[in-house]
């Protein structure tokens, strides 16, 4: 990597070679995302405005997010350690979500 008498710093330039995996998966993901979005719109008009509907929307959102991250962002094909390192910290947001939504409700009540 470095010759013995070199004092110059060369940044790590390792780039793993990635083989193309074809476009099949891309089109499949596109179909899924498209269908989910259409389902969103249909549900919006078909279902009455309830908390349950919101839960469904959020779940659908998370599924869409999964496909974007896993397929488009290539996470599915990365090593699981990378996926863990990036996804695990997201847990910390849930604390903020829980805390602040609870607070919002409290402001409503008072």
């Amino acid at each position: 990597m470095h010759t013995d008498n070199s004092n110059e710093y060369v940044p790590e330039t390792y780039v793993p070679h990635v083989e193309s995996q074809g476009t099949k998966e891309i089109w499949r993901t596109l179909t899924i995302l498209g269908i989910l979005t259409v389902v969103d719109i249909v549900l919006y008009f078909a279902m009455p405005l309830t908390g349950f509907r919101n839960v469904v929307f959020i779940l659908l959102g998370i599924i869409k997010a999964y496909y974007i991250v896993a397929s488009f962002m290539h996470m599915k094909h990365e090593k699981v350690d990378l996926a863990a390192c990036i996804l695990v910290p997201i847990i910390l947001v849930f604390g903020l979500i829980a805390g602040l939504l609870y607070e919002g409700n409290f402001w409503l009540a008072s």
Partner: peptide
Amino acid sequence: SSLLVGYGAVRFSYP
């Protein structure tokens, strides 16, 4: 997240 959660909190403070 911070912006959306902030939105959530405000949203929850209205009926």
